[in-house]
Computed example of a mutant assay.
Amino acid sequence: MPTTPPIVLHPGWQNSGPEHWQSHWQASQPGSSRVPQTDWDHPDLDDWIQTLDKHLAQQAQPALLACHSLGCLTLLHWLAHYPQHHHRIAGALLVAPADVERDNAPAEIQGFAPIPRQRLPFPSIVVASDNDPYCQLARSQQLAQHWGSGFYLLTGAGHINAQSGLAHWPKGLALLQGLANQQSVLG
């Protein structure tokens, strides 16, 4: 009997605080874990990729990733560096990917440009908001298309973070868990 894949959470720049949906999921989902980046405020692409790789290697089976903002781009860069490790991922929920290529991107995150545009070899869904100040809706849709991801729109949810008021965000968790079913059909 197949077991449920572990949930791995990868926050973005400055981590996810206690009211963020990622923190709620970590507290409520047995066996879930957060990628332990050493410096959330001054992200270094190479460090973040290495930390993600080590964390995924520690999982007993392919994981479901729930990435937010810069965490989404970390996953894409990780895959570009370690394409042979794609089997470590059962599926990925890419929530509010950060547009690090935009003109007003903060200096702290510009090192994550350019945004990788390869097709993902595992099931994925991009979740975007129509009023995200860090990635315009058309850009999120374009990235989803490049990545071969499904697309889910939240209306008026901003950057889909703690300020969005999603709390436990059961619909997001259902989207993530649905990716495991897609993997079993594909694999």
Rank of each mutant, 00 (worst) to 15 (best):
E19M: 13
H20G: 11
W21A: 06
W21E: 05
S23Y: 03
W25C: 07
Q26Y: 03
A27Y: 07
A27K: 14
S28N: 13
Q29A: 10
Q29E: 15
S32N: 08
S32A: 13
S32H: 06
S33C: 14
R34K: 11
R34S: 10
P36L: 09
Q37K: 02
Q37Y: 02
T38H: 13
W40R: 07
W40Q: 08
W40E: 06
D41V: 08
H42E: 12
P43S: 09
P43T: 03
D44E: 14
D46W: 04
W48M: 07
W48D: 00
W48K: 02
I49L: 06
I49G: 03
Q50L: 14
Q50V: 14
Q50W: 04
Q50T: 15
Q50M: 13
L52H: 04
D53M: 07
K54S: 15
L56A: 10
L56I: 11
Q58K: 15
Q59D: 12
Q59N: 12
Q59R: 15
A60M: 11
Q61F: 05
L65Q: 07
A66N: 08
C67G: 11
C67M: 13
H68K: 13
S69T: 12
L70S: 05
L70V: 10
L70P: 05
G71F: 06
L73G: 04
L73R: 04
L75C: 10
L76A: 12
L79T: 03
L79G: 00
L79R: 02
A80V: 04
A80N: 07
A80L: 06
H81C: 15
H81F: 01
Y82W: 11
P83E: 09
P83Y: 10
P83M: 10
Q84V: 11
Q84K: 13
H85G: 06
H85E: 15
H85K: 15
H85W: 11
H86T: 14
H86P: 02
H86G: 10
H87M: 11
H87K: 14
R88E: 08
R88V: 05
R88C: 10
A90H: 05
A90W: 05
A90E: 01
G91W: 00
A92I: 08
L93A: 09
L93G: 02
L94G: 03
V95M: 13
A96W: 06
P97E: 11
D99I: 01
D99C: 05
D99L: 05
V100M: 03
V100C: 01
D103Q: 08
A105G: 01
A105N: 03
P106W: 01
E108F: 00
I109H: 00
I109C: 00
Q110L: 05
Q110A: 09
G111D: 04
F112T: 00
F112L: 00
F112C: 01
A113V: 02
P116S: 11
P116F: 09
P116G: 09
R117Q: 14
R117F: 04
R117N: 09
Q118G: 13
L120D: 03
L120T: 07
P121Y: 05
